[in-house]
Simulated scan of single mutants.
Amino acid sequence: MNLTVNNLNSTFSLKAINEKPLIVNVVVGILLYVNGLMIFTFLKKETFRDARYILFAQTLFADTAFMVLTDLTLMGMFYQYPVHIIPCCMICTIMYFLTVCTPMTLVAMCLERYVAICLPLRHVSLSTPKNTFIGLLIIWGVSFILPLFILIVSFAYLSPGARFSYVVCSVEIMLQVTWLADMRAATQQLFFIIMLCIIVSTYIKIMIAARSASSENKKSSNKGLKTVLLHGIQLLLCMAHLIMPYIEMPLWNVDVMIFINVRYSNFILFLILPRGLSPFIYGLRDKKFNNALRYYVFCGICLVSNQRKIIDGKTVRGV
């Protein structure tokens, strides 16, 4: 009887473990579909070449690439599929670059809203496509400094024989050196704390401007305030993955199934979910973008009345 019960428990445990990658793939598939619609809408309309829409598109591209690479890495770890160590390190470097790039873009979007609300007379001159492109280059450059450094140091510490080996790809492959892992964690925490402080100060300044704004501008200021607040919550979710190992590893000695459940929950909540919030925070809440999105989703059906407004690019007040 005890043997039968143990066999049943093992069967249910294996079934629960095997269902988790399927759940992750379903969640990632839904988010990729939404991001794909958003990207298609952005590329189709010339009216979405303002600074805020370009930054929004940047988050869509970065989050889409991050979710694809993360899901592929997760599947490789689950099925223990070995890959060459050099492509593995390249993939992990790109993933780490995208991990930093998205929060920095969120900070840039908050600063753009601050300029639009608190410095409206300078918004047109500052939020030009040229300045936006320069800002993106700065974001990409700063985001790539630490991943590139980790990649170089990791290759320097690899033995000649290990450079031709095959491994199950994970970010831990590049963090075999203790001081390198500690430096990565400390630097990442410092980055996110600085970005959080910028978002909080931006929120406070927009809140002060919203209270003193006229009735005509108060609605726009309140929308901008909510947008910055939502981006702050999104950034906190991104920061939460920094403490995930400290929560997960003690559970390994308690119960393996609890460890697996917590790890997959943290993976969805703090790695996948924050990357899927941008379309809902910025895209669907913007009336102009929302109208264009619905037009393409329904192929113009039931939106005939809005068609002329979308095609002509009529200005609609957004977030």
Rank of each mutant, 00 (worst) to 15 (best):
L229W: 09
D312C: 10
L111D: 13
L180V: 02
F149P: 01
T187M: 11
I85M: 10
R163C: 14
L237M: 14
L106W: 00
A240R: 14
V256E: 08
G283A: 07
K226D: 09
I258Q: 12
F66K: 01
N217R: 15
C238I: 04
W252M: 15
N222I: 04
N290S: 13
P160G: 13
I152G: 00
L22R: 03
L225M: 12
D50Q: 05
V256K: 03
M38T: 03
V316E: 15
S159Q: 10
N261A: 15
Y264K: 07
V177T: 07
S212E: 11
I91W: 00
F149E: 03
K226H: 06
I204K: 12
L136K: 05
A185S: 14
A162E: 12
L251Q: 13
I39Y: 02
C101A: 08
D182V: 14
V319L: 15
N7T: 14
K130N: 10
I243D: 10
R122W: 02
L126A: 04
F97C: 11
T132H: 05
I206W: 04
G232T: 09
V304C: 07
S10H: 10
T178D: 14
L106P: 01
P82R: 00
M67W: 01
A210L: 05
C118Y: 04
L146Q: 08
P21E: 03
I311T: 13
Y282L: 12
P103W: 00
C238P: 02
I247N: 07
S305Q: 12
M38S: 09
Y295M: 13
H231S: 08
R122C: 03
L190E: 05
C88I: 05
A162V: 10
D255P: 13
Y96Q: 13
T70Y: 04
L72F: 02
L303T: 05
P129W: 01
I150E: 08
S125K: 06
L14G: 07
E216Y: 06
A186K: 08
R285Y: 06
T41M: 07
M75C: 02
C101D: 07
N2R: 11
K288G: 09
I208F: 08
V262R: 15
L303D: 10
L180F: 01
